[in-house]
Amino acid sequence: MTGPTVSELDVLIGNKWKKPSLIKSDWLRWGLTLGALIYLVLAINSVEVSWSRVYEGLDRGAKFVKAFLNPDFTTRATDIREGMIESIIMTIAASVVGIAISIPIGLGAARNIAPLPVYLVCRSIIAVSRALQEIIVAILLVAIFGFGPLAGFLTLSFATIGFLSKLLAEEIESMDKVQAEAVKATGSRWSQWINYGVQPQVIPRLIGLSIYRVDINFRESAILGLVGAGGIGATLNTAFDRYEYDTAAAILLIIIVIVMVLEYLSGVIRARVQ
């Protein structure tokens, strides 16, 4: 035990103690705090809120809450059913196609197993897919392919590729090298190496992520209808336009329930594969 000299303790006794700050430099700390405050003031001031409009809206808000407690599933039952089925169909088809395409792209985007040119191509596909919002992609695809679920299906597939390939590639890049090398050491071909050395390590995670993506695809499919790309969104939009809150509430409740079921299923399946 090498204690400090008595004088060191004497200096400390009687002095105020302050918790050391996260940012060491006083100048920088105050600068950041001040900057944040100025930004907040400017930002809040630039938001125009018409409180009278909000006040009027409270009434409608209350109506909506009431509609949630008493949703109307029947009046537009056909529209809701058709919209929902279309959403689900888009989700399924897009998930299958998206996942199938993500696997080769994910393999190609993993630096430790793909050659550099392939890596760069795959990474740029991922970057483009991730940078573009689903709804923007949908707008462009509707302009090109016309209205209908095909545009929605393509949008979701494209978005799935960006999401899943990136995570899959990261998973492969962080996998246990020793296991993979052990398989390589047996003299296997590239395809066998992927099959025995890489696949077993990443499959459980891939399944978990895929199910999670199915969940996201369903939620996204609900808004694609807003721009004409098929699904329940169109019905929902119409319901809002006509102030039919009880129908809108019914649709939202169905979405929530389906998402809950999907989440529950994904929990069960993930528990089983791991």
Partner: peptide, 23 residues
């Protein structure tokens, strides 16, 4: 689960109907 499952665009639609369009 309910706030998560509904996309922000839908929340926006709903809020615009209630408090009017805008930031």
């Amino acid at each position: 689960v309910s706030t998560r499952s509904i996309n922000s665009l839908i929340w926006a639609l709903l809020l615009i109907a209630i408090i009017g369009p805008g930031v």
